[in-house]
Amino acid sequence: MDAGALGSQLVLGLSRGMLYFIVAAGLTLVFGVLRIINFAHGSFYMLGAFLSFTVTEMMGKQNPNGFWLALVVAPLVVAAFSIMIERGLLRFVYGQEHLIQMLLTYSLVLIFGDLVKMVWGTEFKSVSVPGIFIGNLSLAGIIIPVYYVFMLVVGPLVALGLWLFLTQTVTGKICRATATDRQMVDVLGINSTRVFGTVFALGGWLAGLGGALMAPMVNIGMGMDTSMVVYAFLVVVVGGLGNIWGTLISALILGVAEALGVLFLPNLAIVVPYVVIGILLIIRPSGLLKSVW
């Protein structure tokens, strides 16, 4: 095993982890503030990827601007869908049991899954990356595709943006307060449910962004929703429910575990992340960092 391959795989894992972070951050945010486990988060992610495909198609396959436009448009459309769902459906089950809320979002998984099948068909779709991302970057024996480097830049930017939103804006501060002690927020005369729509839309936007970013790296097709949502859940739980930084750490751990699994145990590669998660959960059942609960 040469150090170069190991290094490359490590960097690939980190950039994959960044993507998991972007998707899982939306989930953990919604969870922390709304206290709802949103199974439909994976569907938002899938929708983001399919929308990204449609936008790049419409712009013409070879047009490099298609990718960038998709990166802007797809998450916004998904966010708009999220607001409709929050206002139209979710708000009727606030205050119900977890199970009921969870099954409501699960019904959306089923509905979205078949709607996507109706609109886009069952064939796999692909999105090509713009010219500047083609090729590899090599540094000290570590070879890595340029697109993965781009992900390593976007991930921290998203984390920074979220941090600024949560600590520097009034809405963000209300979000954090609501996550910590909703009753106290209501007592202080702030209508906590008012921020729910905003947070849910932001969660949807992050899932859509994750989907649009993932689009050039995978075959876009059925089933990408459930596989991602299960991963995102595990990331969120291991990180500590509702904790953004915990989510970042656990997403990176998961990405690296997956990449090293491919390198060392190619036959059991999909088992490795689950084993790592299982061990982490057994050592720290309530997550790596403090949960907002």
């Binding site: 299960v230 859940f233 969120v236 739980v237 429910l241 999909i270 689950y274 959960l281 059942p285």
Partner: peptide, 20 residues
């Protein structure tokens, strides 16, 4: 909810082993 999440995580582990 933590209970639920743990059942999900560990259950997926069993699924992955059988799948692979």
């Amino acid at each position: 909810l933590y209970f639920g999440m743990l059942t999900l995580a560990l259950g997926q582990l069993v699924w992955a082993v059988i799948f692979r």
